[in-house]
Simulated assay, not measured.
Amino acid sequence: MRKPQSVGLNIAARRNATCSHCCVAGSPRAEAHLSAEQVDNIVDDLIAHPDVCEVGITGGEPLLQARRVLSLIKRISAAGMKTNLTTNGFWAITPERAARMTADLESAGLSHLTISYDDFHAPFIKPERIRNALDAASNCSIPTILNMCVSRTHDSLDLLKELGDSALCVKVTRFPVQQCGTGLSIPDEDLIVKPLDKLKLRCPGFELIYHHDGKVYPCCSPPIFDTDMTLGDAGTLSHEEFIRKGEKNALLAIIRTRGIKWLLDRVRETSPFSPAARMTEAVSVCDVCTIIMKDRKALTKLRPEILEEARKTHMLP
C-alpha cells in the first residue's frame, strides 16, 4: 500500500528576479519551461491517479502566468486534491492588488500559499510588497508560510524585523542556501554547514517533480536538478509508470531502506579518494546525496553491490 503522494509541478524557469542563490537558476531571460500541452496532460494524469493527494506549483515565478496558474489550481482543487503555490510576492504592489490576488487564489481553491522572501530577494522585491501580500493573506482562509533562504552573511533577520507586524502569526521557515542552480557561485565560506556526524543521514522522502527542464525527478530537493538522476522525460510515461520506475530503481531502493549513510560508507570503502568519500561536512543530507549522485565512477564501482543489496531487501526481484 502506498502512502498518499504530493507531486511538484515546476512549470517554468522564468522569473522577474536574478537572485544569486536561486536553486533552479531562474531569471527574466530563462527560457526552460513545460509546454501548455505538457502541463495539461500532466495535470489530467495526476487528477486521475488515486495516490496523488496534493500538487505543488512552483517555478521560476508561476504568477507571471497568473491566469494560467489560477486555472490549474481550480482544476486540481475541483478534483478534490490540495494545491500549494510558491511565489515571490512581486504581485502585491498595493494593498488592493494584493487583496485581489489572494481573493482569486482563494476562489480557485488554493490550499496553501508559500511566499519566498529573504535577503537574496530583497534587491528585486521591496519589503512593502511582502507586507501587502502577508496582510492580504491574513484576511483570507489560505494558510501562508514565509520561506527564507539564509547564509552566514545573509541571515534575513533584519528583513524579518522590517516586515514588522505583517509577519506576526505567520509560519516562518529559515533554511540554509545550497550550492545548486545559480547558488553554485556562492562561496564555500558563506554556507551554513554541519559535520557529517551531526547530520541525520536519511532521506527526508521522495516527491516526484515534473521540472521545467522537461525531466521528472524522484525528489523535490533542488540540488538533484543539477544531477542526471531522473526518471525520464515528462510526457513519455504515465505518472503511475514514473512511480513504478522509481520503485524499481535499485539505487533509490537502497536510499529508502538503508539510508544515505550506508551508501556513503560504501563509497568511502570502495572509492576513498572520490569527492563524496572526502566530505567531512555538508549543508544537509540532500547535499551529501547530490555529491554521491554526481560521482558516476564511484557508483559504477558499487553497482553490483547495490543491486545485490536491493534484492536482499526485497525491493527488487
Rank of each mutant, 00 (worst) to 15 (best):
L299P: 02
K161T: 11
I125Q: 00
S141P: 00
L208F: 06
T313A: 14
E106H: 02
E240R: 08
S166H: 10
T182C: 01
D228H: 12
L146Q: 01
L85D: 02
T313L: 14
L105K: 04
L264C: 13
E281F: 00
N132L: 01
Q179V: 01
I115C: 02
A250Y: 13
L208W: 05
Y117I: 03
P143H: 07
I260M: 12
P317A: 14
L307E: 10
R278H: 12
P187Y: 06
R278A: 15
I292F: 06
H21A: 03
M229E: 09
R256H: 07
V7L: 03
P204G: 05
N139L: 08
N16Q: 15
E247A: 12
H33N: 15
Y217V: 02
P123G: 14
D118I: 00
P222V: 06
D287N: 15
A108P: 08
G109R: 07
L163S: 14
P187H: 09
S141G: 08
A17Q: 11
A298P: 11
R152F: 06
T86S: 14
S107D: 09
K215I: 11
D51E: 08
K198A: 12
G80L: 01
D265K: 12
A98K: 04
S111F: 14
E281S: 14
I209P: 01
A108I: 10
I42G: 05
V55T: 13
R278Q: 13
H154Q: 12
A48G: 15
E31F: 09
E240D: 13
I186N: 04
E309H: 04
D119W: 03
P50R: 05
A167R: 03
P4Y: 11
R131L: 12
A282R: 02
N84A: 15
L34K: 07
A234D: 07
G235F: 06
L307P: 01
A99P: 08
A78I: 09
T102Y: 03
D135L: 10
P50C: 00
H33G: 06
T144W: 09
N139T: 13
A17V: 05
E247Y: 01
K245Y: 01
T144D: 05
G26Y: 04
P223V: 11
A13I: 03
R296A: 11
A12Q: 12
N147T: 09
V24G: 03
K171D: 10
G235I: 02
T313S: 08
L199E: 09
A25F: 05
K312R: 15
A122D: 10
P218A: 04
N132D: 09
L46N: 08
L113S: 05
P195D: 11
S71Y: 09
R258E: 13
Y210M: 03
G89Y: 00
L163M: 12
A167M: 08
R97N: 08
W91M: 02
P62C: 07
E241V: 04
L72E: 05
V150D: 02
H49S: 10
I292K: 02
L105T: 01
G164C: 11
